[in-house]
Design a protein around this nucleic acid. Structure first.
Lengths: 133, 133, 133, 133
DNA sequence: GTGGTCTAGACCACT
DNA sequence: GTGGTCTAGACCACC
């Protein structure tokens, strides 16, 4: 479970952290009962202000993704998986919606956008791309 | 040339204005030599502070998209078209890149993402969708 | 007597016009009694707003460089030569003062500045430059 | 690192501030990684509106001279030194070019201009001036 | 504490 | 009329 933050991004650091943990839970990289790193450890590891990690964890706690166990730390809750999958779906839908809006206002067709996505997709699509049936 | 701003968006208003003008030039809705609305007019039309428009125009001037003619207003430069097409391409590529990154980290396949886009595309695709050839 | 204006410059157009006439008088390109072009002609020639020429001429009249002759136009005054030579000297001294200040704050030596000037001087200095010891 | 602004000058205050920081970096008075004064501090120190400082800093950020670290302030970038040296050179060359143009159109010789500069140079040149042949 | 954005309104120079 | 600059002060998010 490696978390990476981009200090240059406009996305708040605490949100980057929270989102990455949400995604890790959604993909089962983190499972219910697993501990999350201590605020202190994570802040050192990311060279980030501890308060920033605290805020990320507050967000996650508010969403019911993690819960504190007194004296032991914070742990993934039992029903985090569903919450995170839902949250992930919501995040992606928002992103896609914004992308589509931008593409439309630029006068692109749906096919143009699909082509751009394929071009940016990390593992080049060799065959059986979306274009073929 | 209708400009619309969303005050709720996290994207600064001045950037929304600048981007829309860039897109308008890229699609030839605005052509070299055309005037852009006066700062005062646009600020009234958008019910936005004049300084916000000023800042948008400063961005565009810095990019070489518009140029001031003293006492007369701001005008689309002669080489704005190329600049704007490039800029538009860049903006979209950045957006797509971010979207793909998010989709990948969520464990989606390329086909999943394509499906999401079609779902969000404003004019529903009736037939001959990207899926078919 | 060819006047040229740069609309891109930050120097007001009316001032560019006035300064060039001052310089022309100072170098005797324009002599006492000579007419200056009519507002209308000059504004057409420079593709500039007539009011801009009017303002330039007002400046010159205020300085006593030109004077109106009813129904005939504006003419160089008899004591314009001295006024213009003084004014020219003043303008140049101001410019030099600003240049020196900038060079000093950039950490240049006087010799550095002299070298820069020779480099920019239009007619290359072949020998016997200021540098020779 | 003392910044001084002249409110009487025609040069915008925000530009005076930006230029002085550029010069400070070019002369290594400010080094990569160094912080620049906070917007609030500098605005108080110069008795200038914070927004004026903000604008100066925006200029510098756009040039890649400083970069914001969220919640901590603005810092000199690692490659600011070269940028600033280039920029300083450009600024001075522009100034010199304008000065030479003015001198030429006034009918001065290169030697005349050199003499004027020596006359304005802050620490009078005692001997071995450039004039010596 | 930091910078980022926006509003409101003023004054100026230029056309 | 136009844009350019500056002031004053507010609110926000982030650290």
């Amino acid at each position: 479970m490696a978390i990476r933050v981009e200090t240059t991004s406009t996305v708040p650091i605490y949100e980057q952290i929270a989102d990455q943990i949400v995604f890790a839970v959604a993909t089962a990289d983190l499972q219910p009962g697993d501990p999350v790193p201590s605020v202190r450890d994570l802040s050192v590891q990311l060279t980030v202000n501890p308060n920033t990690v605290v805020r990320a964890y507050q967000e996650l706690e508010r969403m019911g993704v993690i819960e504190p166990v007194r004296g032991r730390g914070m742990f993934i809750t039992s029903d985090a998986a569903k919450t995170c999958r839902d949250r992930r779906k919501e995040l992606i839908r928002d992103t896609v919606k914004a992308t589509v809006r931008e593409a439309v206002s630029a006068g692109l067709t749906a096919d143009d956008l699909h082509a751009l996505i394929d071009a940016e997709w990390p593992h080049p699509i060799r065959n059986g791309s979306h274009k073929s049936k």
